[in-house]
Design a binder for these strands. Structure first.
Lengths: 152, 152
DNA sequence: CTCCTATATATAGCAAGCTATATTTATTTA
DNA sequence: TAAATAAATATAGCTTGCTATATATAGGAG
């Protein structure tokens, strides 16, 4: 069977990958001047909302693996965005705090992310935008349940 | 201004990133038994359609950078999926050919990708699916034109 | 022919993902 | 209490993506 029917622009997976890369590079362009990178964004958002969280708490909040977060946090510490303080009750745990610099970037950084989202959805009506977000949430939920899922 | 309004599940960029990672890991789970990985997929699709393409031609076809493709092709060669033959007319150019193994995988691999797409869109009606793909194409187009774009 | 420029591919170096495993400290159990 | 298990974090090693730069070959201008 030669020439099976597979076109990249009709593949949801292909489009999702391409779209995500454009979101990331657009965000990067906007926040690089602030000394931030896209992968740090989710952790920053969680810490702007509440400091002193542990790595475990962040892993539960963000949809990434523990090892990925550990590396991201190491880069953030290196870049002067966070500091970590060992817990006294439990020697395995560290609480994570934002530096003054990281705190000072909240407004601009969130503005950049919102601007990037707006750029991507510029041609969308409000209801189209809502529907698009809903579709993405549904696709995510479907794949997550398949992940955990039962027999094939 | 403390506590700016930014929620990950209402951010198109966040959802796009998460969704793309789930597509990739789902596809990986399906094609790993074939000895393939998700990043090789676009190049394979292009070569299944027509062999003997050059790297430059593939870069024009796929939405990735030349350096990314160069590395992906190196891994594909290492893994016995492609071979390259230097052009006689132009010493800079190499034509890329599929190995027998890579050719033999076409049906199963495309089936895996289609199955992954189907899994993600399981709960969608046909018109919802079409609309979703269209939304993604529109977001991609908006970000691409902003990339090239005029003054801010 | 020689020098400049353009083109095709490769390499360096980094970020952000992942899986799998190691390490360290707590907790539980025998 | 000593040994086994669990929990929190780190590390190893890989892929896929990027930007920036190097290398090698072609082609054009003088």
């Amino acid at each position: 069977m030669q020439g099976m029917n597979f076109k990249k622009d009709t593949s949801a997976g292909y489009l999702a990958n391409h779209m995500a890369r454009l979101f990331a590079s657009g965000l990067q362009r906007r926040i690089k001047p602030l000394g931030l990178s896209p992968g740090q964004f989710p952790a920053l958002v969680a810490l702007w909302a509440k400091e002193g969280r542990t790595q475990k708490e962040l892993v539960e909040l963000l949809d990434i693996e523990q090892a990925t977060l550990a590396n991201t946090l190491a880069r953030m510490e290196r870049d002067g965005l966070i500091s970590r303080r060992a817990s006294e009750e439990d020697g395995r745990v560290q609480q994570i705090f934002l530096t003054d610099r990281a705190k000072s970037l909240e407004e601009e950084a969130i503005g950049a992310a919102l601007a990037q989202n707006a750029e991507a959805l510029a041609g969308f009506s409000e209801s189209e935008r809502d529907q698009f977000l809903d579709y993405m949430r549904r696709a995510i939920a479907a794949m997550q349940s398949a992940e955990t899922g039962s027999a094939e």
